[in-house]
Design a protein around this nucleic acid. Structure first.
Lengths: 313, 313
DNA sequence: CTCATCTTTGCTTTATTTGCAAATATCATA
DNA sequence: TATGATATTTGCAAATAAAGCAAAGATGAG
């Protein structure tokens, strides 16, 4: 196949008017230029340049080829530049994928700041709760809460995923606050589970790990439903801090058994940004992930407490 | 610089959806395809394709690059095809250069036949009597009468360049016809010369070579002037057969000393077509030169005599 | 869970390209 | 006219790039 280099040397020779001059400008031997152009001529099957020791002149075929090929080379350089340009600074469309609840509460609110910092980026945010293949859906980066599937993607930790026992002040006034993990068995516990069967909450505290079987009059596979029920005063819930942290801060919910915390399970591996393990990570993805890390960590705003205690990792 | 091959493999991979498939189609190892595309990505500085063992998918940069580069490759192939096309059969502009007198009498009249045979050729005929550099003037082929300058051009012999002693019937009736070369000294000889000084005509005949000093009341550096004067009955002229051959045939001029002929000098090396010694001789030039050879040689029409004698080489 | 197929990487072999030097060609200049 | 400076081109050896092979890791189908 004919090489791009030969074509570039051909046009350069036409511009310079001499193979030697081209060699001088490009720092290569004149013989190489000569041979490349000769090879190009063989490749297209026509003489392109009449050669004299003193002067080069185009044949008709050469003129024709030069005209067309000059524009083509320019277009090719433009195409390359356009792509390289994309990488100079964050710009272009950034497809972000994430779970609905977390996305609505913490990703979407962050976007104005991000877009203000990088005005040339446009974001396409897709919130889905079923697991999607990043590449399948055309996403550049995904935010995942817990449960990292084993994949070729790179995971960057954005925040811890602590779970908090909490209930509304109304419920606690009526039912009292548990003082030890075992007390939970006597409370109406709002259970989030994806499976059937009994549910245990594992709580670590000053007296070690306690496993408590919990139950109540609401079981659901939807965290938001648990959340709503807890806000409504139905009972005690075990919910991620990113969901209830700010309500605990405002007092709409009260943390229960604050000396204890849920033992880290599969759901507690943290909140991560996932992106393809490509050798060339695009600047817009890097910028977005860096932005999220900066915004959330090391202690996310939803973990802040007025007294400075709690949360963290 | 990035190679054309890599770009072709990139687009082929996008089309095929798999490096292995491309390798299969193009008969090369999948690893080579993979490496070429990776090198292209390094070259443009951006990831173009997300790879999975099972599937390839374009990045935004890849989509952008693919769109532009596909068109560019097509344009490049078109440009190559256009040039190659030129060589499939004679077509395009053919620049022909030649001396005025011969061109008007024998080249221009031949062109209708040539153009009828090759309808896709357009001829640009430039007739000049000063020597021009073929390449300088942009000519593809030149017709030269005698005097071949030593150059890198290829010379193909089209016809002999015999010179003929002749005079008008009127002059011969008045002054008589010479019977031996020496008789020319007593005739009014019409001398073509570019220099000052005496002029000798060297005539070869049955009695060997005779050198005769000639003179008359007309000396000129223009062959056409000699020709016109001879037709007007002024005297005896030594003129190329291509100029007077047909007039001798028609009787408007009569050959003098037909048993003798001018000794070949620098002016008698023949009539040639000259064209560049390129490795790729264009088909239109080849066709034109072949056409002239066929039309003129081995015995040109202007050398024909009713009795079949004379002329030749 | 196993298998077939895909991409990638290390390693070796092969092909291409390069530079240098020499041969040849051309034009300017003495 | 002869000489010198500079051009293209070619042969040859060295350097560079590309290819294939085999193996390892990855992914989806059955």
């Amino acid at each position: 196949m004919n090489s791009l280099n030969a074509i570039r040397l051909f046009t350069a020779s036409v511009d310079a008017g001499s193979f030697s001059e081209v060699g001088r400008r490009l720092g290569m031997a004149p013989s190489s230029v000569s041979r490349q152009v000769a090879a190009l001529e063989d490749s297209v099957g026509a003489q392109l340049i009449h050669r004299t020791t003193r002067k080069l002149s185009l044949t008709e075929a050469g003129r024709l080829y030069f005209e067309r090929v000059s524009r083509i080379l320019a277009a090719l350089d433009e195409a390359t530049a356009a792509v390289s340009h994309l990488e100079e600074s964050p710009r272009g469309v950034l497809h972000v994928n994430g779970p609905t609840a977390f996305g609505v509460r913490h990703v979407a609110p962050a976007l104005p700041d991000f877009l203000a910092r990088y005005p040339e980026v446009r974001i396409e945010l897709t919130l889905t709760d079923n697991f999607v293949d990043l590449l399948e859906v055309g996403a550049d980066v995904a935010v995942r809460v817990g449960e990292l599937e084993d994949s070729s993607l790179i995971a960057r930790r954005l925040a811890p995923n602590r779970r908090v026992l909490c209930a509304s002040p109304g419920y606690l006034a009526k039912a009292g606050a548990p003082e030890r993990p075992q007390d939970l068995a006597d409370h109406n516990c709002l259970v989030y589970t994806r499976h059937h069967g009994n549910v245990n909450w594992n709580l670590g505290g000053p007296d070690g790990l306690a496993e408590v079987g919990v139950s109540g009059n609401l079981r659901t596979n939807n965290t938001e439903a648990v959340h709503a029920a807890a806000l409504g005063g139905l009972g005690i819930a075990l919910l991620p801090s990113w969901l209830v942290g700010q309500e605990v801060q405002s007092g709409r919910l009260v943390e229960v058994l604050p000396g204890y915390r849920a033992a880290p399970g599969a759901l507690d591996t943290g909140i991560h940004a996932l992106y393809p393990a490509d050798r060339h990570l695009s600047t817009k993805v890097r910028a977005f992930v860096d932005f999220l890390v900066e915004r959330f960590g090391p202690r996310p705003y939803w973990e802040e407490t007025p007294s400075g205690k709690g949360g963290g990792h």
